[in-house]
Design a protein around this nucleic acid. Structure first.
Length: 273
DNA sequence: AACAAGACCTGTAAGC
DNA sequence: TGCTTACAGGTCTTGT
């Protein structure tokens, strides 16, 4: 369940468990590839290294060490948990991080996730980060002037626009739908048709929905050991996502679900214009 | 350059 | 019950 708030929650959960600093004895791979081939020298490189910090960029989780930054993406179905003593490996457990006191396990049925690294602390040089837009919670970088300028001339649906990681990172299918609902904007609207006022509202609501979700995720941090943040969740607060044919909480009209860019897109046809 | 569609995978639920 | 199909939180690649 990894959009920005979920990855942030996982990050906080891991830090909660292992502390800011920890010691990585070794990385153990149960297979050599996930979405991409795992770099052949990754295991050698991250043997017996201090982890000085664990951070997040976009939907990527990063382990900082003197040997470089280990960078992992959860794809669609990636989860982290602590392996209990004597616990057997489960289906789709692909990567084990052997720390001093415990073992962290990365599980990912669909294998859309990834493990790569960046030699330098300068992460802009990392291929996958090259074209990433600003962090949505960074008010300096992600502001009206920026988004307005980017949005002019764009013919694509506004929902696709805010899900485009080159425009702004971290917003996926769920939170795009929720933010557009809060801003009363129909997801099919052409991006260039969005007014300045609407765009301002959208920025506020993207932040709001992500921050609320992070807060709600925060309550499930204790679940990290079990499942990797499955419960105690923000899903109880969805206004439109997954609510097809149910009543809109605001106007009682039936929530619709249409396909935009091949993704299910929930919205209220009365509230969102 | 901009955009749409296809591709990568497995698990689950719904439909017949 | 069993088989088939559609779909799922992402993003990279290919084609128009």
């Amino acid at each position: 369940m990894p959009e920005l708030p979920e990855v942030e929650t996982v990050k906080r959960g891991i830090i909660e468990l292992v502390g800011e600093k920890s010691y990585l004895k070794k990385v153990e791979l149960m297979r050599q590839d996930l979405r991409f081939p795992i770099p052949p020298d990754l295991v050698r490189r991250f043997k017996n290294v201090e982890i000085s910090n664990i951070t997040r960029r976009a939907k990527y989780l990063m382990f900082h060490t003197p040997k470089g930054v280990l960078i992992s993406h959860l794809g669609m179905t990636g989860t982290w948990r602590e392996k209990e003593k004597g616990e057997k490996l489960r289906t789709h457990d692909h990567v084990l991080m052997h720390l001093k006191e415990r073992i962290l396990v990365y599980n990912d049925p669909r294998r859309f996730g990834s493990f790569e690294y960046c030699e330098s602390e300068n992460l802009d040089s990392f291929v996958r980060f090259k074209h990433l837009g600003p962090e949505p919670l960074d008010e300096e970088e992600f502001n009206l002037e920026y988004l307005w300028q980017k949005s002019r001339k764009k013919e694509i649906p506004i929902k696709n626009f805010i899900m485009d990681q080159k425009v702004v990172v971290g917003v996926g299918n769920i939170y795009a739908a929720e933010a557009l609902f809060l801003s009363a904007i129909k997801p099919t609207r052409k991006t260039k048709s969005i007014t300045k006022k609407e765009m301002e509202s959208l920025i506020v609501n993207i932040r709001m929905v992500l921050e609320s979700a992070i807060e709600a995720g925060g309550s499930s941090i204790s679940d990290f050991k079990q499942a990797g943040g499955e419960s105690g969740y923000f899903q109880n607060h969805f206004n439109v996502y997954g609510r097809e044919a149910e009543d809109c909480f605001v106007c009682s009209a039936k929530i619709k679900n249409i396909s935009i860019g091949g993704r299910s897109s929930f919205y209220c046809s009365r509230c969102q214009l």
